[in-house]
Nucleic acid binder design. Structure first.
Lengths: 222, 222
DNA sequence: GCCAATTTCAAACAGATGTTTTAAGTTGTC
DNA sequence: GACAACTTAAAACATCTGTTTGAAATTGGC
């Protein structure tokens, strides 16, 4: 029975509302400590608000977590916009998809806790993962990736094989998001991944296009 | 000052020791709840032992966690053995690396909590990740993957480019380990990934070899 | 059977946890 | 300024946390 957004125009101009301070602080703490490990007091202290504020603005800790995860993953609009300027040739379209996907995943403007929260969700899926898959990954694959791949391979592969090829492309993009800590340990010269976004996207495109071209050539021969 | 393995031969025959019961139960609970979320009582109850047993057999909760993570990841010997039967041609060697790596990652005999624990570690690295990288991933890449790739590409790529290619190969293998929950949601026909290990390994090999062949061909031309 | 060492157990400890309560402060409206 | 609605604040709540204690049970060697 609490109306939450009455004077949002007046507040949003200069300073964060208590609710937003909590959401941002909670994102960081949840990403660092996980749901169980994060304490209400750690969150409210980082946000600079009272302990009781969480239970006032959100029903309880669980509702706060859900709200945080949704905020971290509800960016599928950006992907859709990015696909608008897709080129004519399927090669250029694949290049565009990969570039936008990688750039979106590694966008330095996105707080790092979003990446870590996503990684946590994937390791131990909660109900929030379903929404992530259905609203982000499935549209990306079915509406953009799969049609482009079908065109590139001249329809020579089954649905199942096409799914595997799509997985190969997506895996390379996600790798640099998910395995950032490992990559930095393995490649000292990739210390700051985010400054190599273009190079990474270029390589993924090149590697994938090469694989598809050669596989299609082989399929044509047989 | 506690001697832990005095009569291990006598015990290991039929029943688990308390220590092993704790280690196994802790693996599951840590994977499900994370370090902070897992409670000693949840672990000891699942193991069917007393609460104090953890502090008796391990110094504290943190030491138990480290031991569990190491147990889950200390299988680099298996990889080394697998590489022994590597073939002559670099193509067959890459195929062997990929197959063994994928089979090892998706081995149905490995309890699922090991995968989830690894995923957690990668999302939020602790000190245990350093050991995982140095003892498992780096040897795999430097001793097997990189030399094979160098041979396959006829030495036409820089160290940095070779690193990117190695990343592309490893990313595909790790994808099926890490993103299992997503893949199952995205591909209903891959409901049980573990029964498709051979198919997955075949595809990764085929895709990667095709990419490398085509990229090398292009590099030769320019 | 006896002894010492090792292992298990129930109970208790101090501190931290999520949440609630109750009162004080703030804001907009008349 | 007065009133009501909304928001913050400090303190207290019961419960759960990791860990310790001290005694009971078990074990192996003689």
């Amino acid at each position: 029975m609490v109306t939450k957004e009455r004077h949002e125009i007046a507040v949003d101009t200069s300073e964060e509302s208590t609710r937003e301070k909590i959401l941002n602080a909670a994102g960081e703490v949840f990403a660092e400590e996980g749901f169980e490990g994060a304490t209400i007091r750690a969150i409210t202290e980082r946000a600079g608000v009272n302990v009781a504020a969480v239970n006032y603005h959100f029903r309880d800790k669980a509702e706060l977590y859900t709200k945080v995860v949704l905020q971290a993953c509800s960016v599928q609009a950006a992907l859709r916009d990015a696909m608008a300027d897709a080129a004519d040739s399927p090669e250029d379209r694949l290049r565009s998809i990969v570039h936008h996907f990688v750039r979106y995943l590694l966008d330095p403007a996105r707080p790092d806790w979003m990446r870590r929260l996503k990684a946590r969700e994937m390791a131990n899926p909660s109900a929030a993962l379903d929404e992530l898959v259905e609203k982000n990954l499935r549209p990306l694959r079915d509406e953009f990736l799969r049609p482009t791949l079908r065109e590139l391979t001249e329809g020579r592969f089954s649905q199942r094989e096409l799914g595997l090829i799509a997985s190969s492309v997506m895996s390379q993009c996600l790798y640099f998001l998910q395995y950032q800590p490992i990559i930095e340990r393995l490649n000292p010269d990739f210390k700051n991944i985010k400054s190599n976004v273009a190079e990474i996207a270029d390589h993924v495109t090149r590697f994938s296009l090469a694989a598809i071209r050669e596989m299609t050539r082989q399929a044509r021969r047989s």
